[in-house]
């Protein structure tokens, strides 16, 4: 992200090569496409934009996208913390393999992930067949969307938390216990507070990744409007119907949503640095 902070260096430095290259690269890669999208959707005029942006089908798609992504990121906030804790604090055979496995959602093409999840969680899949008799359908419902989002956003919390946990002195915990704190109090008052910024950063990163997910969700969801249709798929459907205006409007809303999430991440990271420098 660009930060228009006053530079402490002399004015001439502002036009140094690294600065020009950075600005040029970011302009071409990030800023221009974003502006083009917004400009195109705004060319409709505000009232029409608002009307398309707030269609019931679009609202439902935002709801599915953002709320499910939030839930998935939240679940990974807890589970990722547990996994990072186990990977750093426990020694067990195969730890390195499990550690490497955490990155699988990064490495796997998302369509492959969607296919694998759909196979396991469909009514006849290994896991899905256990839930089907209970009347719980996983694949091709919003639950499936949630699972796909959990899968692809899993590594973020683990990877942001691991280095912080590794740097944490275990003596601090012993010190707290010698002062009379029970294990629960040690966790709440000594371990957790310094971990909150990296956990929140991981959650926010996972959230924005989940909001943007397309490939795996499209395979595990039925993509029925008002049920499990996510906004990125809606954009694609609009394009297929040659409804460019509709696609750009929904796209713009998605863009603004992601931008808001990224701004939150930036704040969290600043908070984390401020915290870590203490």
């Amino acid at each position: 992200m660009l930060n228009f902070l006053p530079l402490s260096s002399p004015q001439a430095r502002r036009w140094s090569w690294p600065w020009v290259i950075t600005l040029g690269y970011l302009s071409v890669m990030l800023i221009l496409p974003a502006i083009a999208l917004i400009q195109k959707s705004l060319s409709l005029g505000f009232s029409e934009f608002w009307q398309i942006a707030t269609q019931p089908m679009a609202l439902s798609a935002y709801n599915v996208t953002f709320l499910t992504a939030l839930a998935a990121a939240g679940v990974n906030g807890v589970m990722g913390t547990v996994i990072a804790w186990v990977l750093v604090r426990y020694d067990f055979p195969g730890r390195r393999i499990v550690d490497a496995l955490v990155d699988l959602p990064f490495a796997l093409p998302t369509a492959v992930a969607g296919l694998a999840l759909a196979t396991v969680y469909s009514d006849r899949g290994w896991v899905g067949s256990w839930f089907a008799p209970l009347g719980v359908k996983i694949a091709y419902t919003r639950l499936g969307v949630f699972l796909a989002m959990v899968f692809i956003s899993l590594p973020f919390v683990v990877r942001t938390l691991q280095p912080v946990l590794q740097a944490m002195e275990t003596e601090v915990e012993a010190a707290a216990r010698s002062l009379g704190a029970t294990p629960g109090q040690v966790f709440r008052r000594v371990i957790l507070p310094p971990l909150m910024p990296p956990i929140l950063t991981g959650v926010a990163l996972g959230f924005s990744r989940a909001v943007g997910e397309y490939g795996s969700v499209v395979l595990i969801a039925s993509s029925m409007p008002f049920r499990d249709l996510i906004a990125p798929v809606l954009v694609f459907q609009r394009l297929e119907q040659y409804d460019y205006a509709g696609a750009t409007v929904v796209g713009t809303v998605l863009l603004l949503g992601s931008l808001a999430a990224l701004l939150v991440i930036n704040r969290l990271q600043q908070w984390g640095r401020y915290y870590a420098s203490r």
Binding site: V172, A175, R177, S178, G180, A181, R278
Partner: peptide, 17 residues
């Protein structure tokens, strides 16, 4: 935590936050 002892560590072990 039940022994009512004070313990001081070589690397201080202060709560940084």
């Amino acid at each position: 935590e039940q022994r009512q002892i004070g313990f001081v560590f070589q690397h201080y072990a202060l709560f940084k936050h």
